[in-house]
Nucleic acid binder design. Structure first.
Length: 293
DNA sequence: ACAGGATCCTGGGGGC
DNA sequence: TGCCCCCAGGATCCTG
């Protein structure tokens, strides 16, 4: 569920509540997350101080004071919020990280249990684990290599945007929104994408994610930020979840299709699917596109 | 190499 | 009210 803007919002809202606090203990539920908390970690992190919080892709990184860290992934329905220890515990709380002195705890709640919790003894080990899975942050994409990586793939743009090893943090909502803003069809193949289109897409991703962060993310169902508040950006979505509603740009009804098992929303007028290769023909790059007048 | 499906889960909504 | 089916913001594994 939470994509980059939602995770960024969680981190920003938790940062003032957690930075400088030390961990007293960890209470673990009997249910297992995708990467379940290992019992031995509880005694390892007890007594350590939270040095800083940072987002990387859809991961929340909790850096501790001795070069170790916790890495938390919210999956589809994960929530991270701070509560007084005395608050009654909600359902599906998997981790309660008790903080010293304040009588407060960080709770990791996740009904669907697709979330992950990991501990790494050193940052080096974490980055080694992560680097093979995660591509650059969208804001750090280098235009030329981005364009080339699209160009070298037969996969659809939708699939490419969801591939975390290509660009980190984009999920189903913002993939659809970015393609719409860039006026590119979700089924367009990477290799059909010109450098100008790739750049349009890169800029659209940055713009969509930036606006969504400013709106504190989108709440479709469960999402809440670190403060426990819902997001606001769902109101500003132009295609995602708007099947049949008029496109914000041209008022053609938004269409929905299924791509890679994910529901995909697009405007059939703004986002035109490029012609597949004429059978047997090779389309030379830069060739003039004929449009019937 | 890539698409598509199944999988891990729970909960909410729609239809009957 | 209840039941059944479908759907969901993610990621991974398997098959064809």
């Amino acid at each position: 569920m939470p994509e980059l803007p939602e995770v960024e919002t969680v981190v920003r809202e938790l940062r003032p509540l957690l930075t400088g606090k030390s961990i007293h203990s960890v209470v673990v539920s009997r249910f297992k997350l995708r990467h379940p908390w290992e019992k031995k970690w509880s005694s390892v992190v007890a007594g350590k101080t939270i040095r800083k919080l940072k987002r990387r892709g859809k991961w929340v990184q909790v850096f501790l004071d001795d070069d170790s860290l916790l890495a938390l992934h919210l999956g589809m329905t994960g929530q991270l919020t701070v509560h007084p220890t005395s608050d009654p515990s909600a359902d599906h709380v998997h981790l309660q990280i008790r903080l010293d002195r304040e009588g407060e705890e960080l709770r990791f709640r996740d009904p669907r249990r697709f979330g992950s919790s990991l501990y790494f003894a050193t940052e080096e080990k974490w980055y080694a684990w992560l680097d093979e899975k995660l591509g650059p942050e969208p804001f750090d994409l280098e235009p030329k290599s981005w364009s080339e990586s699209l160009r070298s793939s037969q996969r659809t743009l939708k699939a490419l945007l969801l591939d975390q090893s290509l660009v980190a943090g984009v999920g189903n909502i913002y993939a659809d929104e970015s393609l719409h803003l860039a006026r590119l069809h979700p089924e367009q193949k990477g290799k059909q994408t010109s450098p100008a289109e790739a750049e349009r897409l890169r800029e659209a991703i940055v713009q969509v994610l930036t606006k969504a962060i400013n709106g504190r993310g989108s709440t479709i169902r469960n999402y809440v930020g670190g403060s426990g508040l819902r997001g606001e950006y769902q109101e500003a979505l132009l295609v995602y979840g708007r099947k049949g509603e008029p496109c914000g740009k041209c008022s053609t009804p938004v269409e929905q299709l299924r791509l890679g098992g994910r529901s995909t929303h697009y405007c059939p007028t703004c986002q035109v699917k490029p012609q597949a290769h004429p059978s047997g023909g090779t389309s030379a790059p830069g060739r003039r596109v004929r449009r019937d007048a």
